[in-house]
Structures are given as structure tokens and as C-alpha cells.
Amino acid sequence: KTVHVNGVQYDFDNPEQAERFAKEMAKKAGLQIQFHGDQIKIE
């Protein structure tokens, strides 16, 4: 899974790890999470 945070890309082999990371980042920055198939976007 790939997580995009403000244009920066983070790759994870483990989907659960990717989602946990995305939730942490979104919570910290007060941003929205969008799921697009294999990609998670935080903007």
C-alpha cells in the first residue's frame, strides 16, 4: 500500500501498517484520509 501525505509518498508492504500510519498522520495534522484502492491519500 502507498500512503500519500501532502505529495510525499510512503510505501508499506503491510496494509494494516499503512492504515495505522495514515490515521496517525491525519490525526496529527488534522487532515482528511481518502482511500483509493491501494493508495491512501491524506490532504
Rank of each mutant, 00 (worst) to 15 (best):
E24K: 09
E24V: 05
L31M: 11
V5S: 01
Q17F: 04
Q34P: 03
V3D: 01
G37Y: 07
K28G: 04
R20F: 10
N6V: 02
H4K: 06
G7P: 01
H4D: 04
K27H: 11
Q17L: 09
P15T: 10
Q34D: 07
A18P: 00
A18R: 04
P15Q: 11
D13F: 03
V5W: 14
I40D: 05
V8T: 05
K41S: 10
T2Q: 06
E16G: 05
E19M: 15
K41H: 14
A29K: 11
D13G: 03
T2A: 03
Q39T: 13
F21G: 00
F12T: 01
Q9R: 14
E16N: 04
D11A: 12
F21L: 01
H36P: 06
N14C: 15
Q39I: 14
D11Q: 13
K41Y: 15
K23D: 04
E16Y: 10
F21Y: 04
F35C: 13
Q39V: 13
F35E: 05
M25S: 02
M25T: 03
A18M: 03
A22L: 10
E16I: 08
M25C: 15
Q39G: 10
Q9E: 04
N6Q: 05
K1S: 11
G37C: 11
D11H: 14
A22T: 02
Q39H: 11
F21D: 00
E24H: 09
E19A: 12
A18S: 01
G7H: 02
R20D: 06
T2F: 04
Q17N: 05
K41Q: 09
Q17W: 04
Q32W: 04
K27Q: 12
E43A: 08
K28P: 04
I33M: 06
D13K: 04
G30C: 15
F21K: 00
A29S: 10
Q9H: 06
F35R: 09
D38Y: 07
Q39A: 11
D13L: 06
F21R: 00
Q39N: 09
F21V: 00
D38Q: 09
G37Q: 08
I42S: 06
Q32E: 10
D11S: 13
I40H: 04
G37S: 07
D11C: 15
G7N: 02
M25N: 01
E24F: 13
Q9S: 09
H4V: 14
M25R: 01
N14D: 13
H4R: 09
Q9T: 12
V8G: 01
F12Q: 00
V3F: 05
A22E: 01
Y10P: 00
K27M: 13
H36F: 13
H36S: 10
F12C: 10
E19G: 03
K23C: 15
G7L: 02
G7Y: 02
Q34G: 06
E16F: 09
K23Q: 12
Q39M: 12
K28N: 08
G37T: 07
Q34L: 11
D38N: 09
A22V: 08
I40P: 05
I33V: 10
P15E: 12
D13T: 05
R20T: 10
E16H: 06
V5T: 01
F35Q: 06
G30D: 07
F35P: 04
L31D: 03
I40T: 04
D38V: 08
D11M: 13
K28Q: 12
A29P: 10
A18V: 02
K28I: 14
M25Y: 13
K27C: 15
Q34H: 11
Y10Q: 00
I40C: 14
A26H: 01
F35W: 14
L31F: 11
N14K: 04
Q32V: 13
N6I: 02
K1V: 14
Q34M: 12
H36L: 13
K27W: 11
H36D: 12
K41G: 08
V8N: 03
K1M: 14
V8H: 05
A18N: 00
H4F: 15
L31E: 03
E24L: 13
L31C: 15
I33R: 02
F21C: 05
G37A: 06
E19F: 15
H4A: 05
N14W: 03
R20K: 11
I40E: 06
L31S: 06
Q17T: 07
D11G: 04
A22W: 10
E19N: 08
T2W: 04
D11E: 11
Y10E: 00
Y10V: 02
P15Y: 13
V8I: 10
K23P: 00
K28L: 13
H36V: 13
K41V: 14
D38W: 10
M25P: 00
M25D: 00
Q17C: 15
V5E: 00
Q9K: 12
